[in-house]
């Protein structure tokens, strides 16, 4: 695939499954996930990389899917909120969000959960300020963040406790 084309065949892994699709070069990953694969858990809030609602994991790193072209994901492994939910990898974090009412409208939540997920394995336990810093690229317009910080902190403490 070297020719400069408007459309490209891409093959990648999404939530553990191989996916092959033909996409326009201009299709960003968020639209690819939502429109082509029906994975509507990845939300679009701004399409200019500010709000964080579209955050997914690409090869394990938190990534703005609106600032990543689908065609660039050839050969990569993408994990969305649907995948991370099915795997149960952060079920404890999701339960903490629920118990703490750390979401209201829920629109930011998939991006917030994905963003927070990479904190859970941090070697050093982040404090509240560090949690706030880490999620600072994800807007929540409903909660005022306090409850989200609580939910992440609770999960971190429980994991640290369990790992002891």
């Amino acid at each position: 695939m070297t020719a400069a084309q408007m459309e490209h065949e891409i093959t990648l892994t999404v939530n553990g499954f191989a996916v092959s699709e033909r996409v326009e070069a201009r299709r960003h990953l968020a639209d690819f996930l939502r429109e082509d694969l029906g994975l509507t858990g990845t939300h679009i809030g701004c399409e200019h990389g500010v709000c964080g609602a579209c955050t997914v994991l690409v090869d394990g790193e938190i990534t703005r899917s609106c600032l990543t072209l689908a065609v660039q994901c050839e050969g990569k492994s993408v994990t969305t909120i649907e995948g991370i939910s099915d795997s149960g990898a952060v079920a404890d974090l999701q339960e903490a969000f629920r118990a703490r009412n750390a979401l209201q409208c829920g629109y930011c939540t998939p991006g917030m959960v994905i963003t927070a997920s990479v904190l859970l394995d941090a070697e050093e336990m982040p404090d509240r300020e560090e949690i706030r810093d880490h999620i600072s690229g994800n807007y929540c317009r409903c909660t005022g963040y306090h409850a989200i910080v609580d939910a992440v902190e609770t999960t971190l403490k429980a994991r640290a406790e369990a790992g002891r």
């Binding site: 695939m1 070297t2 020719a3 400069a4 084309q5 408007m6 490209h8 326009e24 070069a25 201009r26 960003h28 639209d31 399409e47 200019h48 072209l69 065609v71």
Partner: peptide, 13 residues
Amino acid sequence: MKPAPFAYAKARS
């Protein structure tokens, strides 16, 4: 808010 169409090529080097 979608990009205007463009072509895309991967550079090998």
